[in-house]
Design a protein around this nucleic acid. Structure first.
Lengths: 150, 150
DNA sequence: TACGATTCGATCGCGCACGATCTTTATCGA
DNA sequence: TCGATAAAGATCGTGCGCGATCGAATCGTA
C-alpha cells in the first residue's frame, strides 16, 4: 500500500489545499476558513441555534463555541439565549457580519477558477465526495449503534 | 451560495469522516490517523529524512517534528542525524514500528468496505481528488511566485 | 406533580495544521 | 578561503477537530 494510492491521503491533502486556496482571500477580510464557512451558513439562514449550525457543518459544540466566541469578539455575530428554550443559544449576524457577505462576494468565483474544473465537473465531484462522506458517516453511526448494544 | 453546494465543505467533511472511519481501528493500535500515515510512508521506504516525509504528505516540519517526537516516545521510530549531512534528521522504524505493519494489515480493507465503493470507483475518485489537489497547489505556487516579485 | 431521561451548550485536554522566526550546517561565488 | 546565501529542522503561538465530562433546561411518564 503506497501512499500515492490512498484516497484518505488525497482527501486530506485536497482539503488542506482548498483551505490554502481560500486563505489569501480570507486574510484580507480578517477571517479564517472555518469562520467563513460559518458565515456562509448564516448568510443562507440567519439566527440559527449553535446545534443547527453544527449539524450543517458536521461540527460539535466543542469546536463551535470557542469559534463563535472569537467571531463575537470580532463583531461578526451575536450570541443570545433563546427566550423560548433557555438551553438554546441563537447565533445571529451583526451588521458587520451581514456586510461581510458583499465584501466576500468575489471569493467563490476565485476558488472555482483555482480548481481548474468546469461547473459540471465540480458538481459531479462534489456529489461523489459528498456521497462518500455519507457512506462513511452511515458506517460510523452503525458502529456506534452496535457499541451501544453492549 | 448554499452550504450544500460547496465542494470545499464536502472535502472537509469527507476528510474528517475518513479520519473517524480509521479511528476505532487505529485506537486499538494506539495510533492517531496522521501517525498511521507517517508509518505507511515509512513502511513504503524506511529511513527517510524529515523533509522527504513532509513532501510526500504535504506537511511541514512544524507539524512533523512534534509528531515524530511523540512517535519516538511511543517507541515506533528513531530520529538520528545523518552523518553525511548534519542538517538532516533521518527517521527510521524501530522493531515495534515495523511490527505495527502486520498488526495494521487489516485496516485498508476495512476502510475500503466502509466507503461502499468499488475498487475502480475508488481509483477514479482518488485520481480526481488528487488532480484537484494538484491544481490548487499549482495555483498556490504561482500566487507565491507573483508575491515574491514585489 | 415529581423525577429520571434527554437535549443543548460549555469546558477541558490533547493532537494536528500552519505562519513566523531562529539555529545550525552546507554550498556557492568572488 | 571567506562571506553571503540557501537548506534542514526546531520552536513558538494560534486556531481548529474532537473525545470526555459537566451543568442547566426541558420533556415524558408514572
Amino acid at each position: 500500500m503506497r501512499t500515492e494510492h490512498m484516497l484518505c491521503l488525497s482527501l486530506h491533502a485536497a482539503s488542506r489545499a482548498m483551505t490554502r486556496a481560500y486563505q489569501p482571500l480570507l486574510d484580507a477580510l480578517g477571517l479564517t476558513y472555518p469562520q467563513y464557512v460559518v458565515l456562509v451558513a448564516l448568510w443562507d439562514e440567519d439566527a440559527q441555534p449553535v446545534g443547527a449550525i453544527g449539524r450543517r457543518l458536521m461540527l460539535d459544540t466543542n469546536t463551535l463555541t470557542p469559534m463563535l466566541k472569537r467571531m463575537e469578539t470580532a463583531g461578526l455575530v451575536r450570541r443570545t439565549r433563546s427566550p423560548r428554550d433557555e438551553r438554546q443559544v441563537i447565533v445571529s449576524l451583526t451588521e458587520a457580519g451581514r456586510a461581510m457577505e458583499a465584501r466576500a462576494a468575489h471569493v467563490p468565483a476565485r476558488i472555482v477558477a483555482a480548481t481548474g474544473l468546469s461547473p459540471e465537473a465540480l458538481r459531479d465531484l462534489n456529489a461523489r465526495v459528498s456521497a462518500l462522506k455519507d457512506s462513511l458517516a452511515r458506517e460510523d453511526r452503525e458502529r456506534e449503534d452496535r457499541e451501544r448494544e453492549d
